[in-house]
């Protein structure tokens, strides 16, 4: 049994998949702070299908970039489960490439495209991809005007629905679909260690 989990931006996305990667059930919510319901939803999901947590064999969780707290919530769940469930194989999945995979499946872009995520404080995480999902650049954190300048006027881009953007060309998304994560969990090229991707610099100054 595979558990997939994303809390790396505003909402919550999780799902259980069987050994043939068929979805047993999933849960998504774009509501802010929806990670507060993570454990009750996961508990109910497992109970409904009579799946003991100890029978999980694989786990895939997004590692960001995204909300610092959100990333940590997902990783804390993964690390605690790894401690308790014998033989569980946890893997990390990068958030922006995961969104790229989902957007390719939904929109079939014919040209390179960019993905933006809110990084708070008038900044965004940004990464560009080929139509096949290969990264064209590393994920970076920039001010929104800088990111839009880097993307350029021609490249289509996607952003979460709650991010206010000056360009109407943007297409929006609200959650990462569990099925996308389950598919990526099958592909070792996406696997990463369970380490948070903190690519935004901290603003704190030394005393």
């Amino acid at each position: 049994m595979l558990l997939v989990l994303d809390t790396s931006f505003s909402g919550l996305s999780m799902g259980i998949f069987d050994d043939t990667n068929q979805e047993v059930e999933s849960f998504t919510s774009a509501t802010p702070r929806s990670s507060d319901v993570l454990h009750t939803q996961l508990h109910q999901l497992l109970e409904r299908h009579h799946i003991p947590p100890q029978s999980l064999t694989r786990l895939a969780v997004t590692t960001g970039p995204g909300s610092f707290t959100g990333i940590r919530i997902g990783l804390a769940v993964a690390q605690a489960l790894a401690l308790v469930v014998p033989g569980l194989q946890p893997v990390g999945l990068p958030t922006l490439p995961a969104l790229a995979q989902q957007l390719i499946a939904e929109h079939h872009p014919l040209t390179p495209f960019a993905v933006l995520l809110d990084a708070a404080g008038h900044t965004v995480y940004h990464q560009a991809f080929t139509p096949h999902g290969q990264p064209l650049s590393a994920a970076v954190c920039l001010s929104l005007p800088q990111a839009l300048q880097q993307i350029g006027p021609e490249m289509p881009f996607f952003a979460p629905s709650n991010l206010l953007l000056p360009r109407s060309a943007a297409r929006t998304f609200s959650v990462l679909q569990p099925a996308t994560l389950a598919e990526m969990a099958q592909n070792p090229q996406f696997h990463q260690p369970l380490q948070p991707a903190y690519i935004k610099e901290l603003a704190y100054k030394h005393a």
Partner: peptide, 22 residues
């Protein structure tokens, strides 16, 4: 808040996985 979330999430997960109260 952000510090409380870590311990709380971790302990809730341990409870859930072991079928014990949080």
């Amino acid at each position: 808040t952000t510090a409380l979330v870590i311990g709380t999430t971790f302990a809730k997960t341990l409870a859930l996985a072991n079928g014990k109260p949080f």
